[in-house]
């Protein structure tokens, strides 16, 4: 993997409401380039929404988003999202396209690559996740784990500076979780900047550089994994950990 020279991501004072529902209440998050930040917390705490605000799938009501120290709120959001790869809980592969076409769609239409060039890059990307031999299959004929690895290849094909994972293993059968987590750990150790919303506490503790605990739209605690998991300071984090561990 090529050296990554950018990708430091910062969210500052992010607020978001849906009607009277105040989902994010002033979130600060800082992810140094080349590091992995995991975001944990109970369901409905706003973790997944935070990811969507950080890549402007949803525009924040207040606050700022910086990539490499520069605010990106004035940029074209489509341009921003080309720099940030995203992997979803439900994979969201395009069922009417082959596995290879899923990976090459953005390369061809957004990067303007020729069919040949995109095909070569797409196959290389699929090789990286161990699924080159499924290039011509339809997503519907793959297992959940394979689908999620294709989704990761699809996001990586755009050479993103940051990767978002939104509960990427929550929809997988237990025996398929390991392979996807291992792939994510490989990416992290290869120096990819990652924000990982997860319920996998083992992954959070072992792979991430920082852990952020969210509850009810605020960051309750954040710090290195050892501090969060071994020395929680707030009652809310202690009760969350005792529920999930």
């Amino acid at each position: 993997m090529k050296a990554i020279e950018s990708g430091t991501l910062t969210g500052r004072g992010l607020h978001l409401s849906f009607g009277s529902n105040h989902v994010l209440r002033g979130i600060d998050l800082h992810v140094e380039r080349g590091t992995t930040a995991s975001v944990i917390g109970p369901s409905g705490s706003g973790k997944s929404t935070l990811l969507r605000v950080l890549n402007r799938l949803i525009e924040p009501d207040q606050g700022d988003i910086l990539l490499d120290g520069r605010s990106v709120l004035k940029d074209n959001p489509d341009e921003l999202r080309r720099r940030i790869g995203m992997v979803f809980q439900q994979f969201n592969l395009f069922p009417h396209k082959t596995v290879l076409e899923n990976v090459t769609l953005a390369l061809r239409k957004l990067r303007g690559m020729s069919a040949d060039e995109a095909r070569r890059k797409g196959l290389a990307q699929l090789d990286l996740v161990g699924l080159k031999h499924k290039a011509d299959a339809r997503p519907g004929n793959l297992s959940g784990g394979q689908q999620q690895r294709v989704a990761i290849a699809r996001a990586l094909a755009m050479d993103p500076e940051v990767m978002f994972f939104d509960e990427a293993t929550s929809a997988l059968d237990p025996e398929l979780v390991k392979g996807v987590l291992a792939l994510m750990a490989d990416l992290a150790s290869a120096g990819m900047t990652m924000v990982v919303v997860t319920h996998e506490m083992g992954f959070s503790r072992n792979v991430s550089d920082t852990v952020t605990f969210m509850d009810a739209g605020v960051v309750v605690e954040s710090g290195p994994p050892a501090a969060i998991f071994d020395d929680p300071r707030t009652a809310r984090l202690r009760s969350f950990l005792s529920d999930v561990l």
Binding site: L57, R81, G85, M86, F88, N92, F94, L110, A151
Partner: peptide, 15 residues
């Protein structure tokens, strides 16, 4: 068509 399809396409950077 599931909402996730539009979301995933937009997340790639498509308008």
């Amino acid at each position: 068509v599931e909402k996730g399809q539009l979301e995933a396409t937009r997340a790639l950077g498509f308008s």
